[in-house]
Structures are given as C-alpha cells and as structure tokens.
C-alpha cells in the first residue's frame, strides 16, 4: 500500500509525457501532410497491393515482380501484403472492404469466379472494379517420357476400356486444375482415378516423376524442369489455342473435346474506386507489363502474358463467373 501514491504520481508523469510525445509526433506529421497535399494529385501515399495467396507462390511472384517494376515510375512506395486464407477469400474480403480511394488493389486469380460456388465467400467480380488482366495459365495433360501413351487419344482410349484404372494426379481438390480433369472425363466419356494433391500442382509433378500416378493435369509452369529436360511429355493443353512455346502440342478443343480451362490473373480495386484513378493504375500496370523483365520471366516460366483493359477484363470476368459456376456444379464440387 505504501507504493500507492508513488504509482499515482508516476501515472501523471507518464500520461503527460505521452501526451507531449504524441503532440510532437502529430506536429511532425502535420508538416508532412501539408507538404504532400500541395501536390494534390493521385498518388500521394503508398499503394497497398494485396496478394490473396502465400509468399513464394506463383501469384506472389507475379505481384511482387510487377510491383517492383511499377514502383520506379509510380512515385510512391508499393507495399505487397500477403493476406492468405479461404482459397483467396480473405485477401478479396480485405480489398472489397477497403476505402475505394485507389490505394488498395488486389492481384486476383480466377478463384474470384469460383469462391462463391465452392462456399468460401459471398464475393464475386461484381464487388470490385477490374483494372487490368496481366497473365494466364492453363493446365495440360502430361505423362512421363517412358509412358506407353504417345497421344491424348491413346490415353483416353485406354481409359475408355479400363474405367478407373488410370491414376491421374492434379492440383488442389476443388481447384481449377481438378475441375479441368473432371470436365475432360465428362467430355471424353471416360473415368479416371483422380488423385488430387493437397499442396498444389508442383507436388503432382513429383508424383509423376516418382511413377506413382500415370498422368497429371497441371499447368506446364509447375513442371517446367521436367518438360524442358524431356522427362515429361505433354499430350494436350486446355487452352483455347496452342501454346506459343509448344506448337506441336494440340489443344483438347481441336481434338473435339470442349475443355477450356484458364486461370487468369488481373488486378481489382474496391467497388466505387473513381474511374480516373483506375485509369492511372491501369496505365502504370500496363507499362510494367511491357517491361522486358516481366516478359522474360513469363517466358522462362512457360506462362502466358495476356492484356485486357478494364472494360474487357470486366466483360471476361462476367463470362468466366457464369461458366465456372456451372463447371463446379457439374463437377460435383459445389457447396449447397
């Protein structure tokens, strides 16, 4: 009890010290603000770029690369933030709820068109202002070089005669690559034994390398080392047109199966972000996309650059949402 008065006195001192400190800091800050508002033009503070997936993944690399290039001309720092969870839902929610002032954007994937159907979130593209589309990946059917199947037809013929005999590995369950395999089964009228891998496409390629599955369906960029060294053979891609880097590999579309699966990446801003700010962001991002570094990176990754402006991207998202929702229902992966 003896301590009581002392403690009280300390409180007074502490609080007054804190007040003084905060006054000083506020003072400094106020100076800063007036300086900045003189310019009075967007951008006048750092831009937050939300990455709805983990550090080190494909989406993360694309975002950080573009941010790095764009920062040089943007005039303000760009802060990349990984907000992971719920198949991207947490990152999307964060941006959807942010102030629509142009300082919050998210690098979206085609998950934006599936999270509602799979029950991860209620958000759709309609809760955002699309800015620009930057790249896409599409899955391909691959086998090991020593596999007996030289063409997709041979493999599908075998599967047709031997239902559930072929083990086909793919990415995360319920993800787009998985949906692609199911769609292929339906279109070709065959049954595989599908083995999804919980940690994504890269581990599916490890299973194929180890001979634990007969074929895999993942995008080429998750198995580049093996494709380039000739250990894997691509039998068909799920793109609308043949890949530039692999002109000999046919698409399933031209084989007569209507299987087109694309995961498109692009930037979204919260609903209500002013059009002129979206324009500024679009122009900066477009310039970053044209940078040699980005082009080379995409080439090395066997990934694909695609450019869509805000209006086109929005149109695309509307179509994508409709078709993927149907796909997921067909595949039996929809929740309620």
């Amino acid at each position: 009890m003896k301590n009581m008065p002392k403690v009280k006195k300390m409180w007074v001192v502490l609080i007054s010290a804190l007040l003084m400190l905060s006054l000083v800091i506020v003072g400094c800050n106020a100076n800063n603000k007036t300086e900045q508002s003189k310019k009075g033009k967007y951008p006048e503070k750092p831009l937050t770029m939300v990455i709805p997936f983990g550090a080190g993944g494909g989406t993360d690399q694309v975002a950080r690369m573009l941010a790095g290039i764009m920062e040089k001309d943007f005039g303000q720092p760009i802060i990349c933030v990984n907000k992971t969870g719920g198949a991207g839902a947490i990152g999307y929610t964060e941006t959807a709820n942010a102030k629509p002032d142009g300082y919050n954007i998210v690098l979206s994937t085609s998950n934006i068109s599936t999270i509602k159907a799979t029950g991860n979130s209620q958000l759709t593209y309609q809760d955002f202002e699309p800015i620009i589309a930057v790249n896409f990946d599409a899955p391909a059917l691959m086998v090991k070089a020593d596999s007996p199947y030289k063409t997709a037809k041979e493999l599908l013929d075998y599967a047709n005669k031997n239902p559930k005999k072929l083990n086909v590995g793919t990415g995360t369950p319920g993800g787009l690559w998985h949906v692609g395999v199911i769609k292929l089964e339906k279109e070709a009228g065959v049954q595989f034994n599908i083995v999804p891998s919980t940690t994504g496409g890269a581990s599916a390629s490890v299973s194929l390398l180890g001979g634990h599955v007969d074929a895999i369906v993942i995008p080429p960029n998750e198995a580049i080392a093996q494709i380039k060294s000739g250990e894997f053979r691509m039998l068909g891609t799920m793109t609308p047109e043949r890949l530039k880097d692999f002109p000999d590999v046919p698409t399933f579309n031209e084989m007569g199966y209507n299987v087109v699966i694309l995961s498109l990446r692009g930037y979204l801003a919260p609903k209500g972000t002013p059009a002129e700010v979206v324009k500024v962001l679009h122009d900066h991002l477009k310039k970053a996309m044209e940078n040699e570094k980005y082009i080379n990176y995409m080439k090395d990754q066997v990934s694909n650059i695609i450019y869509m402006d805000s209006a086109k991207y929005k149109e695309y998202l509307a179509k994508e949402y409709e078709s993927y929702t149907k796909l997921i229902e067909e595949a039996g992966l929809a929740k309620k």
Binding site: N3, K6, V7, M10, W11, V13, L14, A17, L18, L21, S22, I25
Partner: peptide, 25 residues
C-alpha cells in the same frame, strides 16, 4: 501502433511494479 504500444508497455511495467518513470517511458 505507436501510441498503443507505448501505453501497452507502460501499463504492464507499472503493473509489474517498475517504479522508475524515466525507465518506463
């Protein structure tokens, strides 16, 4: 973060009977 952290640490140190206000701040 700034004010919150200073208050957080200060209050804890007071609860743990650190009696030197200079040290606390």
């Amino acid at each position: 973060y700034e004010l919150g952290t200073v208050i957080f640490l200060g209050v804890l140190m007071i609860i743990f009977r650190l009696n030197n206000w200079f040290k606390i701040v």
